[in-house]
Design a protein around this nucleic acid. Structure first.
Lengths: 330, 330
DNA sequence: TTGTACGCGTTATCAG
DNA sequence: CTGATAACGCGTACAA
């Protein structure tokens, strides 16, 4: 067990606790000799300071909370996991730990507890809804926090991919390949990201000087049945391309097309605004936007830590994507 | 901001800090009247105690660490998420928080940091490998911990589904449906769970008084190509049923069968020892064992908290499954 | 360069 | 039943 304290070290070395503390933190004037001696001793007896005690003294916890949803959305899981990994790499390197609080749209008791009990120095919101109560709450408490994704509130620090540009670019490529009757299928309109992607989609048409057919934009594909109906409609209307808002819809569209004997890319091209293993391994493999979620998490963490250390970094929008062209748009 | 302390409360109420502390904790003799007065005041000014300060005094942190893998295994993600949710429900109700530490087979620095810095009271290992360095490390430090899944070391507290019985039951059902040449396909033999499932599989044959064909047990299906080859072999050998160790293999087998024009359940029946959304929504839907991961996490958390509070609960093996019969074994 | 003394917010001990 | 007082382990003005 590791129950050594700086007092023990001080006694063993015949110096004061203050000196030991200084040697460890590197703060304050102290001779290189004693520093060396202390560090040596610490290393040999592999002492590590108590984060709790330090926290009490410094009024810090060296913990940040990461908020993830309770509910089980299988297609979003890889995103959260990668994101968390990116966060973890940064926090770990700065000796912070991650407290996870599983939260619901209406119920953020877990988050509130962490704040109330003063267990955290800051928060990362890994999902941004148009109407985010948690963000509102955090703002009121004055707790530093960043949102991954976009928020309506310009005051909240946002870390996001430059979805507009990314989606514009992918859409432009499809236009460049000759698509004129391009459909956009999405759901979850409450998520801010859907709106952002839509922007990029429209922008591509603008910059091509073409009028986008607004009637080909479907934002309520909330069931497989609905997607199936949309697909039928698209074939009737002789659409030449489909862009899906996310990998879930793309995967569903792919399966449905196979069932309906719609050939991709022969009859219609297919692309997704979000990549996944399902789209890279499917038959045919689907062209998609590949966002680096790990990096996104890392930047979010780095930004939050800056805030905790007193800086005011502001929002960041990352050019953090690759367009991966696959058979589905050949 | 919430920076009120018990000293402030004591002063405002004209009593001592001790009394305030007692009123809050409920410990020690104290009149119902003053308790009421204090609680009332606390409620009105919505004061909440500092977990850090309490931690220092009590030598506790009210945090537990949950260890999950860094790497991205898409099919395992739902398990971790559900598990975490179950853990979260229990810890939350007891005012504990979850510190997550992402760990690798060889690298558990994150876990070690949490232990060294005394930031946690216990650990839940959400994955058990045959050779688990983290468990070994924790044992040495004396930190309370439980493993979800099984361990070779009888001394470590294990929380697991009764896989043997569950797999036995599913296998028995298939035997009951007339399968005599039943194949078992698995991979990841390093995971203890694979071994456990194999046990159940064999047991079903024993209790049916039939000799299992050991040559139909494939435990190295580590690639889609390999699964494809196995499938071909099974058709040649006129196997009449396939049981997959997990949902990943089952999903792959399903896709491959479609490509090879192998009819399920016509040509061969298919079942999986682990359920997933992919198997319930596929065509045909696949018979599978449905394990309650959330409950598993909850029991693990409850067990760990008992240990932290000084009890010695011991391992628990839960009858925590349903067999869901679907078209694939009709 | 080093040491003393006190504070951080709670709980625990031991008198009253 | 209640209240000083001392921990808990570390950081930090202030002093030497």
């Amino acid at each position: 067990m590791n129950k050594m304290t700086i007092a023990d070290i001080a006694e063993a070395l015949g110096i004061s606790k203050t000196t030991v503390s200084r040697a460890i933190s590197g703060k304050g004037r102290i001779s290189a000799g004693t520093t060396e001696r202390v560090l040596q001793y610490i290393h040999e007896h592999n002492y590590t300071p108590s984060a709790v005690a330090r926290g009490l003294a410094e009024q810090k916890t060296y913990n940040i909370a990461v908020v993830c949803p309770k509910e089980y959305e299988i297609f979003r899981l890889p995103y959260y996991h990668s994101c968390l990994y990116g966060i973890s790499e940064i926090t770990g390197s700065k000796n912070y730990d991650i407290l996870i609080s599983m939260t619901d749209d209406k119920d953020f008791r877990n988050l509130k507890r962490a704040v109330d009990n003063r267990k955290i120095d800051g928060v990362i919101l890994t999902r941004s809804l148009m109407d985010d109560r948690a963000a509102q709450y955090l703002k009121e408490t004055g707790m530093p926090f960043v949102v991954i994704g976009r928020s309506n509130d310009p005051e909240v620090v946002q870390i996001d991919n430059d979805h507009v540009e990314a989606c514009r670019e992918l859409t432009s490529i499809l236009i460049g390949k000759g698509c004129r009757k391009l459909a956009l299928i999405g759901d979850e309109y409450t998520h801010t990201v859907a709106y952002t992607r839509l922007q990029g989609f429209r922008k591509a048409f603008q910059s091509a000087g073409i009028q986008a057919d607004e009637s080909l934009i479907y934002l309520n594909a909330d069931s497989e049945q609905r997607i199936s109906d949309i697909l039928d409609e698209l074939m009737n209307r002789r659409a030449d391309g489909i862009v899906c808002m996310d990998e879930k819809i793309a995967a569903a569209a792919l399966v449905l097309c196979r069932a309906k004997h719609i050939m991709i890319p022969g009859d219609i091209k297919l692309a997704s605004f979000y990549n996944s293993q399902f789209l890279s391994r499917s038959d045919p493999a689907v062209t998609a936007l590949d966002l680096d979620d790990t990096r996104l998490g890392a930047v979010a963490a780095a930004t939050l830590l800056e805030m905790i250390e007193g800086k005011s970094p502001g929002s960041r929008f990352l050019k953090n994507y690759q367009i991966i062209l696959r058979e589905s748009t050949a």
